[in-house]
Nucleic acid binder design. Structure first.
Length: 153
DNA sequence: GCCAACGTTGGC
DNA sequence: GCCAACGTTGGC
């Protein structure tokens, strides 16, 4: 099983939104590295941390979800009214993919970015590397478990 | 709102 | 293939 971290701006789609709808197509990914990971490495049943980025309140890890589908074409790329249309994407060979994610749990508290930065165990996390902008990234099982444990304190 | 870091685009 | 210009991300 693989572990992931997926970012969303809470003003756009938050952990509470996911809790309400249960399953959501994770659309809008327009980055090749992120797309390739969804396509090549994500499996149904993988676990992902839900991360609130650019949050007006607290930026950090807020929940857990499960990957609920294989990668399939992101319909919003063909919708001119969507937030991220891509007129250059060929419907016969769609450029952008998404996966469905399923709500698993909301953490008892937000594990903030500031807190993650103070932990030696997490120093190597991709999330904490300078200039990191990937919205989907792999997380090690040890890192995943450690963050879950932190949230219980 | 600012700005650093990064990815993408397009001219050459 | 290089690289400048531009757009986006995301922390602060």
């Amino acid at each position: 099983m693989n572990y992931w971290l997926m970012k969303s701006e809470p003003d756009c789609f938050s952990i509470d939104d996911l809790k309400r709808v249960k399953v959501e197509p994770w659309d809008g990914i327009r980055n090749y590295q992120a797309r390739n990971m969804m396509r090549d490495d994500m499996k149904v049943g993988d676990k992902a941390l839900f991360y609130h980025s650019n949050a007006s309140k607290e930026t950090g890890v807020v929940g857990v979800m499960n990957i609920a589908s294989e990668a399939y074409p992101d319909p919003t790329q063909f919708d001119p009214k969507s937030d991220h249309p891509d007129p250059k994407s060929d419907p016969e060979n769609p450029r952008w993919l998404l996966v469905d994610v399923k709500f698993a749990e909301k953490l008892p508290r937000t594990v903030t970015l500031a807190e993650l930065k103070t932990k030696k165990t997490l120093h190597k996390m991709r999330l904490l590397q300078k200039g990191n902008r990937l919205s989907i990234m792999p997380v090690k099982k040890a890192e995943f478990d450690y963050i879950i444990k932190l949230s219980a304190k």
